[in-house]
């Protein structure tokens, strides 16, 4: 496998994991623009635990899960104030959370502040790929349980969900916390993949992109974030390859403009995301009732 390909596949794996981190709350109707906050906590906790020079020197097999768990605990505590907000205010609250985390870490000399922090243990594709597959299977399984049905019901109509015995707050807290767990996992894996982390890796643009993976992929099915992350990782690279092979500076230099136009078109034609329930129904070849009667 070429270095380029394995580097791209590693990025894809990481993007898929963070997409699922944001998907889980989104599946219950919560928009989380704080992906970077989770990633920074996971990345720095994982890095600090692992680094033998500046940190505690723990093995990678311990530092990564512990980083994910600590992020989940923070997400759990944070979910109570954040889940009091709704809609666009929740977007702002989660965004503020990410900014606060970034601000704190930038001023934390123990982990190098703005200079960034080196991480020892290296997690290559052989580690990333199985974990990514496990994350996909976990989310797909979760959505197929009664708990998943409750999540999707809360997304559609929380008042009715309540009347059928669903504890809406608990479902929301659980989804947000599990999202935090995956976000921390992503951050820790990222640190171990690149062996160097800085707060700037997870800036505002990152938060927006991850939310777009999920919203453009579709929040109705567990396939959405997978498709969204694939699209956002692969299409810019394909546009680059296309530009190089056509020797066209317009495509090579303007690929992000082209990509932007593509996003706008998708929002116009697939406002509920690329993968929707109706699409899956059609693909599975079930006859619709209209066709029969």
């Amino acid at each position: 496998m070429s270095g380029y390909l394995s580097a791209q596949l590693s990025i894809l794996c990481l993007n898929i994991i963070i997409a699922y981190a944001i998907f889980l709350p989104a599946a219950t109707g919560q928009l989380n623009l704080g992906a970077g906050g989770f990633a920074i906590i996971g990345g720095y906790v994982g890095g600090y635990l692992n680094s033998s020079f500046d940190g505690l020197g723990w093995a990678m097999s311990v530092s990564i899960p512990v980083a994910a768990l600590i992020t989940a605990i923070i997400a759990f505590a944070l979910s109570f104030p954040i889940l009091r907000t709704r809609g666009v205010y929740m977007v702002l609250a989660t965004f503020a959370f990410a900014e606060v985390v970034a601000g704190i870490v930038l001023n934390l000399e123990v982990v190098g502040g703005a200079a960034g922090f080196p991480v020892d243990g290296h997690a290559d594709l052989k580690i990333l790929a199985p974990i990514t597959i496990a994350v996909i299977v976990f989310c797909w399984f979760l959505l197929s349980t009664r708990f998943g049905l409750a999540m999707r019901s809360v997304h559609d109509d929380e008042n009715v969900a309540t009347l059928f015995g669903i504890n809406v707050r608990w479902i929301r807290v659980a989804a947000f916390t599990l999202g935090g767990l995956l976000g921390g996992l992503y951050g820790a894996l990222y640190g171990h993949q690149y062996n160097y982390i800085e707060v700037q890796n997870w800036n505002v643009l990152f938060n927006i992109y991850v939310l777009l993976y999920v919203l453009l992929g579709g929040t109705q099915t567990p396939f959405g974030p997978l498709v969204g992350a694939l699209f956002f990782t692969v299409v810019p690279e394909l546009l680059r390859a296309l530009g190089e092979s056509l020797n066209s500076e317009l495509i090579a230099d303007g690929r992000f403009a082209l990509f932007g136009i593509l996003i706008v078109l998708m929002m116009v034609f697939r406002p509920e995301g690329i993968v929707t329930r109706t699409l899956l129904e059609r693909l599975s070849g079930r006859k619709t009732q209209e066709a029969v009667t």
């Binding site: 399984f141 959505l143 197929s144 349980t145 009664r146 708990f147 998943g148 049905l149 409750a150």
Partner: peptide, 11 residues
């Protein structure tokens, strides 16, 4: 449904 039952796949 019980809490463990909620983590059993129904889909």
């Amino acid at each position: 449904s019980s809490l463990p039952g909620q983590l059993f796949p129904i889909g």
